[in-house]
């Protein structure tokens, strides 16, 4: 089993050793981290956390648009760590997750992956 170390910055930099093949939500909850969740299949955003450092595979998520991904959000219920990672968790990490859609529209490349256009360079 490949193990990664996950650091939770906004929980006093607590660290957890997790199986690289398991979704982060399961691994962390199994070790007693109190995390929000809803659908558990990557569609509802409830479990989002902010990645501060490291890399994850979250291809199975369908909740985030490209702006949220660029802002570092990770859907923990489907994400697997590709490296050691540091996160902020819970709603305190959601400062950039929600926006008023009328006041702060998305650019075409910031939409969800299935409808986003590629950004002109």
């Amino acid at each position: 089993m490949t193990t990664r170390t996950i650091t939770i910055a906004n929980r006093g930099n607590a660290t957890y050793a997790v199986d690289a093949k398991k979704p982060l939500l399961d691994s962390l909850r199994d070790q007693g981290v109190d995390l929000p969740y809803g659908c558990k299949y990557g569609g509802c955003i409830t479990c989002a956390a902010k990645l501060i450092e490291g890399e994850v595979n979250q291809k199975a998520q369908v909740a985030l648009n490209n702006r949220q991904i660029n802002d570092g959000y990770v859907i923990l219920c489907v994400a697997r760590p590709l490296s050691d990672c540091t996160f902020d968790i819970g709603v305190e990490s959601h400062d950039r997750l929600y926006r008023n859609p009328f006041l702060d529209p998305l650019e075409p490349h910031e939409l969800k992956a299935d409808i986003a256009t590629t950004k002109d360079q």
Partner: peptide, 18 residues
């Protein structure tokens, strides 16, 4: 779709017939 409305409201998705 739940995967569209549950994460929040992206106004642009209305135009994309979501």
């Amino acid at each position: 779709a739940p995967n569209t409305f549950m994460p929040g409201f992206d106004l642009e998705e209305v135009g994309h017939l979501k």
